[in-house]
């Protein structure tokens, strides 16, 4: 493995300069020591736009070493455009080995999903976070939300969820569903579907969260309690799908709806492309496995 960045990039290993990495690394260590607390950090301008993963990219750049194997997913898939772009960025600036296999990766950067394959001790999951503040849509001012976190005053959040129940009979939040970490901080899991929330609870992997535009880093150490907020009479529930994956027949996984035509034709397939491919390689066949595969992006 090439220890230095390929010469033609003209940039430091993993793009960031060492001073920036030290600053981010200090923030990561505080984040690990204070699970769920959003550590402010001096987020840098990155060569991709804000909102496209600059926080995750900075965390990954600060963590990554020459022996790592990197996987990047967006919407659960390795071949979505932003995932391809970020994977190429690190292949180019850090010269690290990349993979699409969840089991082979040491560092996984993700947007909007947690892989279906359970993560293991020693793996690091880096989340790209657009809005780190769970109270932001209830209280837009940072000065106020900081006070609420300091006081562990999460009444607003419970009122919001309860209003949902009063109005709809159930909680109407489907993604970025708030969690309580290690019995103290309420945290945004980033816009993963709430389906993935239970995977965060006592995961053997280290979970790091980077929000570039909002300049925050937070973390969930391995084997840490992550509890989705709910009420005794309205316990937390995850999404369920009526059918198995049309390609690999998996059940109990998160599915993407793929539109086949403009006459209402639909198929449901695994959002986690590596998981789906591994199952098909192992001989599992869904009802449309032999029909036309959904086309990739042209």
């Amino acid at each position: 493995m090439n220890a230095q960045a390929p010469a033609e990039t003209g940039y430091n290993f993993a793009y960031l300069d060492e001073q920036t990495k030290r600053m981010i690394r200090r923030a990561i260590l505080k984040a690990v020591a204070i699970p769920g607390y959003q550590v402010p950090f001096a987020s840098r301008e990155m060569p991709m736009p804000y909102g496209w993963g600059t926080g995750g990219v900075q965390v990954t750049a600060a963590v990554l070493g020459p022996n790592d194997v990197l996987k990047v997913i967006d919407q659960g898939s390795d071949d979505t455009t932003n995932a391809v772009s970020i994977r190429k960025f690190f292949a180019k600036t850090a010269g690290v080995e990349t993979t699409t296999r969840t089991t082979e990766a040491t560092v996984i950067q993700t947007r909007h999903r947690i892989p279906e394959t359970p993560l293991t001790d020693g793996q690091i999951l880096v989340y790209q976070v657009p809005i780190p503040e769970p109270l932001r849509f209830l209280e837009p001012r940072e000065t106020e939300t900081r006070k609420l976190h300091a006081l562990a005053d999460y009444g607003l959040m419970h009122v919001k969820l309860y209003e949902d129940i009063a109005r709809h009979g159930h909680i109407a939040t489907t993604y970025d569903y708030p969690v309580e970490v290690a019995g103290r901080y309420v945290m945004n899991p980033s816009p993963t579907p709430k389906f993935d929330n239970p995977k965060m609870h006592r995961s053997p992997a280290l979970q790091l969260f980077g929000a570039g535009r909002e300049k925050r880093i937070y973390a969930v150490p391995p084997y840490t309690d992550v509890v989705s907020l709910d009420f005794e009479d309205h316990p937390f529930e995850v999404q369920r799908f009526e059918k198995p994956c049309a390609l690999c027949a998996a059940t109990g996984v998160y599915l993407d709806e793929v539109v086949l035509d403009d006459r209402g034709g639909r198929m449901f397939v695994c959002s986690d492309s590596d998981f789906c491919a591994s199952r098909r390689d192992a001989g599992h066949r869904g009802e449309m496995a032999n029909a036309a595969q959904p086309a990739g992006q042209s």
Partner: peptide, 14 residues
């Protein structure tokens, strides 16, 4: 610095 940081992060996370 990278490898030392990773060891420190592992140590604090576990």
């Amino acid at each position: 610095a990278q490898s030392h940081f990773r060891t420190l992060m592992d140590a604090l996370a576990r």
